[in-house]
Simulated assay, not measured.
Amino acid sequence: MAVSGAGAPAEPVMDLAPQRGPGRITAALRDIGAGLALWRLGLALGWLDIKLRYRGSILGPLWLTISTAVMVGAMGVLYATLFHMDLHKFLPFLSLSLVLWGFIGGVVNDAPTVFTQAAPLVMSIRMPLFVHVLRMVVRNVLVLLHNVIVIVVVFALYGTRPHETLTIAPVLALWLLDAGAIALLFGTLGARFRDIGPIVASLMQIFFFVTPIIWPPEMIFVGRQYMLLNPFFPVLEILRGPLLGESVRASIWLAAGVHSVVLWALALGLFCRMRARIAYWI
């Protein structure tokens, strides 16, 4: 056990002792709480990942912004022509959708390796596993912030103004919570089964085309209600709608809440049961 500065024994940072019943839940929740308390460490590690990824590059992470801007410009003109849509309305929609999906895709694709990539730290330093979840979320948030520049420029050029701005902050908090749940769920599965990463990557390619990202949701006239079963559409729409100055239906808010509750229930259930084995799997 670790010893505090006052000389009194402190609770271990990460307890890997086999536990059953409520002890598993308590240990997992203690891990998450201790990880949140070390948020500065997670922030520093996430920032370090970005620096190492672009070490030696002249523009650094700005390459992400440039590539996103080129993609938005090329796809915007192409699909506006194919779909016979007004470019002034479609380009802000496309730029926002691609940037938000970039964050979602980055989180989901990074989640299966969140613990395996941190194996040297896990095996050498006694710290909460949730710190590595924070590290991954911070890394993708930093990438998102670089790409937000594209949204700001496009919105300014076409005069798009957000609507219902009071809902944006709670939705962003929900996005961060869901990102943590995704990391816990797929990170735990990915530590045990290394096939989870390729499976998730393949599924995300399918979801990219079946989710309204490069095409507006109003293009679906029959069976639009079934889009609520897509776990990405409601969460995407409750943020995209207000930013585009559009109102969001109550059913979409309800679906986003249900998907988030189910996601966290699965993530916590699996993490509580398998947390003590992760260090041995990786």
Rank of each mutant, 00 (worst) to 15 (best):
A169G: 08
V154S: 11
D110A: 13
H163T: 02
L157E: 10
L142D: 09
L62C: 04
M71D: 05
V99K: 14
P162L: 13
T65G: 06
R139F: 07
A74Q: 03
M75R: 04
T165P: 06
V138F: 14
M71E: 10
A183E: 05
L172V: 13
A181G: 12
L78C: 04
H132E: 09
L176R: 03
V153W: 08
W101G: 03
G106K: 11
G180C: 10
H146R: 13
P61C: 07
V150G: 11
P92A: 10
V152E: 05
V99A: 10
P112S: 08
V154C: 11
T116P: 05
H132N: 09
L142Q: 14
K89D: 12
L145K: 15
L91D: 04
V152F: 13
L100N: 15
V131C: 07
L94S: 09
L172E: 10
G106D: 03
V141G: 09
T68Y: 03
V137S: 07
I149C: 13
A111Q: 03
G102L: 04
N147A: 12
F90A: 07
G60C: 04
A80N: 04
T116K: 01
M127D: 01
G180W: 00
F93M: 12
V131F: 06
W63R: 00
L134S: 06
V108Y: 09
A111I: 01
V70I: 11
